[in-house]
Each structure stands twice: as structure tokens, then as C-alpha cells.
Amino acid sequence: MKLLTVKTIAGGEFKTLVRQKTFVLLLTIFLFMAAFSAFIGWSTKNTVTKIYVATVRELISSGTKKMPVNPFLSAPPLSILKNMPTYVFLIGSLLAIIIGYSSFVRERKAGVIKIIFSRQISRVEFLLGKITGIFLVLSAIVGLSFVLSFFSVVIISGQMLVFSEMFKLLMFYLVSFLYLIIFAMLGLFFAIFAKSESLALLAPMIIWIFISFVMPQLTSALDPNSLLNPTSIQSIMPQSVFFTSTRFLLEPFSVSENYKTISQSFLQGDIKEYPIFSLIVYLFFTMSIPFLVIKKFNVCEVEIE
């Protein structure tokens, strides 16, 4: 294995991705997501606090003595970002598929793959280079989103984050990064594996739908709208033998649910569960499958529309 070749491929990958309009677009979307979730969190918090004050006034005038507490009073500062996991889970993962997908399909379409594979480079080295490039790009995107989130929280709450909160925010973005890698690898895998370009994009999409909607339905039996609402995750799920057993069997593997739980634990601080198992399994699995198919990849059948 030659480190230099891997570095060349990775560098090339990073350069092309960054120079492409796609990258600018993805970065913009991510930063927008981060800013937008902060904005929604801020505006909702603001309004609900006002509603709370109005409610308390109403209760006082009607003579109630025992006052309920403002639900936002105890919420940690990061909780205004609580929409961010939903966006990473919906938009981010889809974008990650596209990053992984385009990194290989580009070569296939341009026919460059024949030229590359006829050089002094093993296919494994080539793939390692690609993956490194994808890692670099994703970490750049996630890193910048972290910075933006950090500043928006500081500005909105009007005070510096304590170290433990900063650590939690960092951990949230790290977990998000890993979650995105899973989908980028899926995209890469199908770009190598699929026979046509559209199948290469639609197949990971179908898996994405399965992971994001079908699995959660099986394990939580929640209706899909509640799956997207960060507050209702903790709401009570229907109890029955069927769902207790599917939950027991499938939940450890429902990576989207687990990702949301971990994120909520870091951001809202009220679940305190870190089911990291599925994330590791999926990471390991999706990162190894491209290597399994790259050797069998038929360079002579690369003509795809």
C-alpha cells in the first residue's frame, strides 16, 4: 500500500468536490439548516415564554394558587437547537448519499475509471483515497455547522457556553458526522455496484426510506409526524406484545431512532441514553461493502448514461 497514491486520490477528490457547485450548495444548505434550527428554537422559546406569562396572568385572575413552572425554564441552552437532529436525519443523510454517489459516478461517466485502473494503483488504494476525500469534505461541512451553531447559541442565550455544554455540542456534531458517513458510504457503494446511474441513486434512497421511516414505524409504532417532532419522541408508545417484541428485537438496529435519541440526550439533556451500538454496526458494515464490490467492478461495463 502506497500512502502517496491514497493521498493523491484523496486530495483530488477533495479538490473536485470543493470546486464543484454541489459542494457550495451542500455547505449552504447545512449552514442554513444550523441557522434555521437556531432561529426556530429562539422564536418558539420566546413566544412560548410570553404565552406562559399570559397564562399565569390568566390563572392568577381566576384565583388559582398553585402555579405550574415554565417548561422552558429548566431547558438547557442547547435545546433551542433541538430541530437540528431532525434536519441532519432528513436532509443531511440525503445529501451525504449524494456526496458518496457522485464521487464515483463522476469517474464512471467521464470514462476516467479505465485510465485510473490502468495505472500503478490498486483498487483498494483508490477506494481508500476516495473515502478519505469524502471524510474530509463531510468534516469540513459539519465543522463549519458546529461553529455556526456554537455562535448562534452564545448570541441567543447571551452568555458563553460552559465547558460541559460545549462538549455536548461537539459530541452531537461528532455523532452527526458518523451518521452522515453511513449514508455517504451507501451512496458510494451503489455508485460502484449498480448497473445504471439512476438505480445507483434510487437504491440508496429506498434504503434511506427504510431506515428513516419503515424501521421506526416497526419499533416505535408512532405515526410519522411524531417521528419528526423532537418533543414527541418521549411520548408514550402503544403497548402490546407485538410491538414490545419488535422493539426489543429491532430497536438496537434502528440507527435513525438511535441517532435521534443520542442527539436529544446531548442537546435537550432529558433522555440520557446513548445507544451507540447500531451506529458502530452500520458504520462498520457500510464502510466495508464498497471494498467488497470494488474488486468485482467490471471496468468494461462502465458506460452508463
Binding site: 426556530i40 412560548v48 406562559y52 397564562t55 436532509i91 409526524n225 417532532n229
Partner: peptide, 30 residues
């Protein structure tokens, strides 16, 4: 994504009543 998931999700999370599992106003006894 935007039409089917994001926009309804925004509307849903901005709903004051949805801020607490089970409903904000219910928790406030209103």
C-alpha cells in the same frame, strides 16, 4: 423534502401546544 417533511415539521414544532409531550396547555391546566 421541503414540501412533505420540512414545512409540516416546522409548523408542527412551532406549535406552542407541542412544546411538551402531552400538550403545553394540558400541563398548565388550562
Amino acid at each position: 423534502l421541503v414540501i412533505v417533511l420540512i414545512i409540516p415539521q416546522i409548523g408542527d414544532t412551532m406549535d406552542p401546544d407541542n412544546q411538551i409531550p402531552g400538550g403545553f396547555f394540558k400541563a398548565m391546566n388550562i
